[in-house]
Simulated assay, not measured.
Amino acid sequence: MSTLPFPASVYSARLSRAASLAADAGLDAIVVGPGPDLQYLVGVEGDTIERLTALVIGPGATPTVVVPRMELAKVRSTAVGELGLAVADWVDGEDPYALVTSAVGDAARVGVSDALPALHVIPIGDRLGVRLELATPVLREGRMIKDAEEIAELRRAGEAIDAVHRRVHEWLRAGRTEREVAADIAEAIVTEGHRTVEFVIVGSGPNGADPHHEVSDRVIEEGDVVVVDIGGAVPSGYNSDSTRTYVVGTPAPAAAERIAVLVRAQQAAVEAVRPGATAAEVDAAARSVLTDAGLGEAFLHRTGHGIGVSVHEEPYIAPGNDLVLREGMAFSIEPGIYFAGEWGARIEDIVVVTADGGERLNVAPHGLTAVGLR
């Protein structure tokens, strides 16, 4: 019985598009290893191991999966089995790279997915006798534009993580450690509809000034500004990612004023999203609000990143990225401000590019949210 999140026809269309994109790029074949690309194309999840699993796609050729026989049942339970793709299985002692060579044929230009490690890339290149290229430009083009089924799953993930943010007041209070709060949040992420917890950041007081702080044993104090950045994967494998900023008790007036500017900056970037705008223009919309308020130097990172079967994927909403936005792209909008040794704040939503603008997938309150004391 299939447990795939989408009908087989969805995966068939993805494979056909990948083959077409490969042809457009002048590639005779692409070799895709375990990771987000393989999950996207045929629903096979998992990471690369020392035994080679690879999907070979070529324009006009039947896709072939090279897989250890011990993993065969797992692979056949995915779209590989439903679509009747060619399977070349192998056992320890046999040469899996020869199977890749056979599937590739006489290809002169071959691309490999960026998740395939050197452990496998080098033997494949040696067997083929060609200089391998990155297939990233082909594979990212498919994944960047979400279809209706993917957007529905991202919307489900957004609703689930919003439900967790609406419950943060239950756990976040003075006297508890960041780690204790994070444990409660992680449990709620699963309770509210995710199958896995991908990350939980609880950055209180000065720890909030580190954008990638996770958790610590610091005891949360009255007056702390607290960054809570959380996400997980729903059963389909699509991810949520949302950040809100809280204060324990009453905030200092200066902090409240600066965070109000941050909320305006985030709103400005969301409003800048539309087909035809560039990623850099959306980033600039947030950055200019902060710069005009004298907070530009406190914004330490890009405005956003794409999301789907990976938490971070293209497109990246960053200065200098002239990528033109198209309907169906999905990414975070998450400007932040950070003051070393004091506090930090970040506001993050996932936004989907629509025909005439952008749709927020996160709607939990955006402003500085006060939570109770012990």
Rank of each mutant, 00 (worst) to 15 (best):
A135M: 00
P137A: 00
V138W: 04
V138F: 01
L139A: 06
L139W: 04
R140S: 13
E141R: 15
G142P: 09
G142N: 10
R143I: 10
R143N: 09
M144S: 10
I145W: 08
K146W: 10
D147W: 07
D147Y: 13
A148K: 13
A148N: 14
A148W: 12
A148D: 15
E149G: 11
E150R: 12
A152V: 14
E153D: 13
L154D: 09
L154Q: 10
L154P: 04
L154C: 09
R155E: 15
R156V: 12
A157L: 03
A157F: 08
G158N: 10
D162L: 01
D162N: 11
A163S: 15
A163N: 11
V164Y: 00
H165M: 04
R166H: 11
R167V: 04
R167P: 08
V168S: 01
H169P: 09
H169L: 04
H169M: 00
E170M: 08
E170W: 03
W171G: 10
L172V: 06
L172Y: 01
L172H: 01
R173W: 06
A174L: 09
G175Y: 02
R176D: 07
R176I: 08
T177L: 02
E178H: 03
E180Y: 08
A182F: 00
A182R: 06
A182Y: 01
A183L: 09
I185R: 05
I185K: 08
A186V: 00
A186M: 02
E187S: 15
E187G: 13
A188K: 11
I189E: 03
V190P: 02
T191N: 12
E192Q: 12
E192H: 11
G193V: 00
G193K: 05
H194D: 06
H194M: 10
R195G: 05
R195S: 15
R195I: 07
V197T: 14
F199E: 02
F199P: 09
V200P: 00
I201H: 09
I201E: 10
V202M: 05
S204Q: 05
G205K: 01
G205F: 05
G205L: 04
N207V: 11
D210F: 13
D210C: 04
P211C: 05
P211R: 04
H213E: 05
H213L: 02
D217N: 15
V219W: 07
I220H: 04
E221V: 09
E222F: 02
E222N: 12
E222A: 14
G223T: 10
D224N: 13
D224Q: 07
V225H: 01
V225F: 00
V225W: 03
V227P: 01
D229H: 11
I230L: 11
G231I: 02
G231C: 00
G232C: 10
G232T: 10
A233T: 09
P235L: 05
G237K: 03
Y238N: 06
Y238E: 06
N239R: 15
N239C: 13
N239V: 12
S240Y: 00
S242V: 13
T243V: 14
T243L: 05
R244W: 00
R244G: 02
T245R: 11
Y246L: 08
Y246N: 08
V247S: 03
V247L: 02
V247G: 05
V247N: 03
V248E: 03
T250S: 12
T250P: 01
P251E: 08
A252S: 14
A252H: 13
P253D: 15
A254F: 05
A255S: 12
A255T: 13
